[in-house]
């Protein structure tokens, strides 16, 4: 069951993390809106991969989840601000 929990943390939690990280990175690294999307997408795959490695290498399933939820929550604020007109 611990494996299932880690798998869910990696796939679902990791996906959420890679989306918010992609939004923030895309905004931070680009000057124009279409570029932000492209950069964000290309960056998100790297984050998603890292999330997988974390989820399956850390000591417990709880820590796997914490590794997804905490950074996602931290990045959700700035990401929300960006979606509300970061390029306006």
């Amino acid at each position: 069951m611990a494996v299932t929990s880690r798998l869910l943390a990696a796939t679902l939690g990791g996906y959420a993390l890679s989306v918010v990280a992609g939004v923030v990175a895309g905004y931070g690294l680009s000057v124009a809106r279409p570029d932000a999307v492209l950069v964000g997408m290309m960056f998100s795959f790297v984050v998603y991969t890292g999330a997988f490695l974390w989820a399956f290498s850390t000591r417990s399933a709880t820590r796997a989840w914490l590794g997804m939820v905490v950074p996602t929550l931290l990045l959700a604020g700035p990401a929300w601000w960006i979606t509300q007109g970061g390029f306006a």
């Binding site: 989306v19 895309g26 932000a36 999307v37 997408m41 998100s44 990401a79 960006i82």
Partner: peptide, 16 residues
């Protein structure tokens, strides 16, 4: 990168 418009649609929504 080929698949990204399909599998990361939320990034389009975030900016557009």
């Amino acid at each position: 990168v080929f698949m990204m418009f399909l599998c990361m649609p939320l990034l389009i929504s975030a900016f557009y």
